[in-house]
Write a protein that binds this DNA or RNA. Sequence first.
DNA 1: TTTAACTATCTCGACATCGAGATAGATGCA
DNA 2: TGCATCTATCTCGATGTCGAGATAGTTAAA
Lengths: 154, 154
Amino acid sequence: MSRAARGTERSAPGIYLVLWRAFRAIEENASRSVSSLGLGHSDFAVLEVLLHKGPQPVNVMGKKVLLTSASITAAVDRLESRRLLQRTSDPKDGRSRIVELTASGRRLIERAFQKHAQDMEETMAVLRSSERTELVRLLKKVGMWAAARLDDEP
Amino acid sequence: MSRAARGTERSAPGIYLVLWRAFRAIEENASRSVSSLGLGHSDFAVLEVLLHKGPQPVNVMGKKVLLTSASITAAVDRLESRRLLQRTSDPKDGRSRIVELTASGRRLIERAFQKHAQDMEETMAVLRSSERTELVRLLKKVGMWAAARLDDEP
DNA sequence: TTTAACTATCTCGACATCGAGATAGATGCA
DNA sequence: TGCATCTATCTCGATGTCGAGATAGTTAAA
């Protein structure tokens, strides 16, 4: 490998490119494992939050899955029309709408998450345990730094 | 940290979650550095490929920036209407349209790439040189494996 | 040469997301 | 209490992307 090519990989734009390609490939693996159940990225994420974190107000979920208020409203509309979740009113706050899984929504996301977990396990199988730990450490380090930079200038 | 929490981080879905969050935060940093120049992710990527790889047929670029034929056509339309690039016919193949930067397109992407490089440098500054190397190695390892899995069942 | 299969690009309709702004309820202070 | 401000959600219009299919040009084998 040439000196220039080696340098490219470690330059900041080069690292971003590698990260982008890896993420897209892994994301596509994740996507395939649940799209057969009729769930896209956001819908899966919304249901998964409800499954593992319990009923939530609309905007709290929106922040967790990184969707704007318009998008989370649309996502909840989609899923509510499929009877996978339902909105209930919050007795503490008349503005707030609490979202919770229906029985069939719970069945679906349990199945979907299991497929997702299995598929991610196969996708990550190429990494040794110590490599997984190190990858997570590095991603958290740079990810939290990047997130902090965003807060500086909102 | 509890045993369960440690386990979550290293489980395959947990790694995916960390990857997703890090990518989104870094991507948003990248986005801000060029959005002031009126470029979105895809438009930036298209111009950047033309800058660093030279004139290309439409679909060759589409594959490099991971856009479908419909999307790359739309992106090239957008950029052509802003006179940042132009389509020319390929004398070797009547179906093919070669895309190349205009002078103003070149000026814009040179400026944008410089901002991008600077911003990524600041975003990655939290990682030591050895950590960058290791991060790239791990991302390439899992990314290439993930991409190969996609080819198995297209 | 003829024609079937392939390839590069574009068109069309559908959809998820976004930013900005509207609405209704909550909060806090004079 | 009255009013300004904040907050949670939703609506609207615009945009970028996609899948499927249409069109035109190329390739290769009978």
